[in-house]
């Protein structure tokens, strides 16, 4: 469909400036849904907050704030720093970005395990040691970067052979 085929503008029904709909700004279903939402959230919320009210509120709102104002800017900033460091060699970005993202994701999710924050509790529960996970994380990270480097190498070799065959056709090409 062409974007130019705009239907003739329908004239919206005239409403009083102070109609409830105009003030609410959305349809009636929207209002009903949101009232239901806050009823359910309130019913579960008083139970969630029963106990360490301030602690739970801090965790609930804090998780959103920490994500939006700390975690996201940190990884977005890291990505910007990577792009700045590589400068004009933009083709290299993803060879660092992808393994770094994957490794960082594992670290973010399994930080307590990798940092052995609960070593004694883990051993008491499982009877095995969580010592191995830091090494495993390093190993996975190493493999990811190695795979990325290998891919880059293969690509470079391929493009070089491509270029060499090109130079054979045009031996006078200036370097």
């Amino acid at each position: 469909m062409s974007t130019r085929a705009v239907p003739p503008p329908s004239i919206p029904p005239r409403r009083s400036r102070f109609s409830p709909r105009r003030r609410y700004g959305e349809g009636p279903l929207h209002l009903v849904l949101l009232v239901a939402t806050f009823c359910l959230a309130g019913y579960a919320g008083v139970r969630l907050l029963d106990g360490d009210t301030v602690g739970v509120l801090l965790w609930f709102a804090g998780s959103a704030v920490l994500h939006d104002l700390v975690l996201l800017p940190v990884y977005a900033g890291a990505d910007r720093a990577l792009r700045a460091a590589l400068g004009p060699r933009t083709a290299l970005v993803n060879f660092v970005r992808v393994p770094a993202f994957l490794s960082g994701l594992l670290l973010l999710i399994w930080f307590p395990l990798i940092a052995r924050r609960t070593e004694r509790r883990y051993e008491a529960a499982a009877g095995t040691t969580p010592d191995v996970y830091f090494g495993n994380w390093l190993l996975i990270t190493g493999v990811l970067f190695a795979l990325s480097a290998l891919w880059l190498l293969v690509r470079a070799l391929r493009s070089r052979t491509g270029r060499r065959s090109e130079t054979k056709v045009r031996p006078s090409a200036p370097h």
């Binding site: 939402t37 359910l40 969630l48 360490d52 739970v56 307590p112 924050r117 609960t118 509790r121 883990y122």
Partner: peptide
Amino acid sequence: IQLDYLFPGSFYTLHFYGAWVFLAGFVT
């Protein structure tokens, strides 16, 4: 699941009621 009980209360309580609060926003 990593046995790092930092959260403010019993896991069962927080995760069960937290799920319902989440659901309210999720359905809408």
